[in-house]
Design a protein around this nucleic acid. Sequence first.
DNA 1: CGGTATCCCATTTGATACTG
DNA 2: CAGTATCAAATGGGATACCG
Lengths: 161, 161
Amino acid sequence: MRRKSVEHDECPMSQAAEDIGDAWTILILRNLFNGMNRFDDLQKHLEIPTNTLTDRLKHLCEHGILTRKKDEDDGRRVTYRLTPKGGDLYPILIALAQWGENWQPSPKGKRLHLLTKATGEPIAKVRVTDQNGRPLKPKDVVPTPGPAATERAKKLYSKSW
Amino acid sequence: MRRKSVEHDECPMSQAAEDIGDAWTILILRNLFNGMNRFDDLQKHLEIPTNTLTDRLKHLCEHGILTRKKDEDDGRRVTYRLTPKGGDLYPILIALAQWGENWQPSPKGKRLHLLTKATGEPIAKVRVTDQNGRPLKPKDVVPTPGPAATERAKKLYSKSW
DNA sequence: CGGTATCCCATTTGATACTG
DNA sequence: CAGTATCAAATGGGATACCG
């Protein structure tokens, strides 16, 4: 989406969404987290047009979420890998998966189980907590504008609209 | 985004992203979590075109994320509120905010602090954990297709591509 | 107040073909 | 293998005007 009226760096939330909120991008990241890291594996598995895949990969590389490296043995071969910044998207993807599975269930049952490798138990639900691990609801959290907050953000959080 | 080749209910992750991944939608949800629940407050604060706002609100209502209720006193007045399904998006929004603040910092400093109301301390970083609260990395988690998984998903998670 | 209805235009999508 | 090039078609964005 291209917007005129909303400054680009206004909100860390929507800025993040702009970078990864696209559905193709989410699918690509999902596959990368599962170890699929070559152009044509992605293309075949997702059935994504090659130019769209190029576009998304380029965008992810430019934003430091992926690295693109040529294989040293085979110069034609390219590998995409998650950077630390990319790897840190993991909680977001898992939270999306849990929400989707929970609230938009398939009539046929579960699509995806996320199990702890060590024990085989399901992982915990991703939550917002305080430093001691106590769950927090929206009303328990105070969003406070920092020095780089826009006027708009300050307005929102001061509730003087 | 409209796609042809990817079945609509394939992946809970990308399906969730389709529902809320749009940047306007994220901004609207953010404002709703902050208690802004009227059409024209949203419109003025976000400077979003009215038809786009209508579109996003309708979509969110149709997907059970918001309710639209007319004020009993003033029949002209309408209020949008988060449903439980909508409220459960909170961890996703917070995770997006934390990632954006962390990895796409503004040169001027922090834009948003998220503080625990009870203590004033920053909230914890949203993480993926096991049932005992121990942090899990992608390699510690086994994604397992459930009964409703598509062939494509099974293929991905079996790594036989 | 809370929207609809139009309109136009920039962008994006996906198909197809081609290349180093 | 990993893309580029091209292109027609769809779509979505935003401005403006209007309505119950």
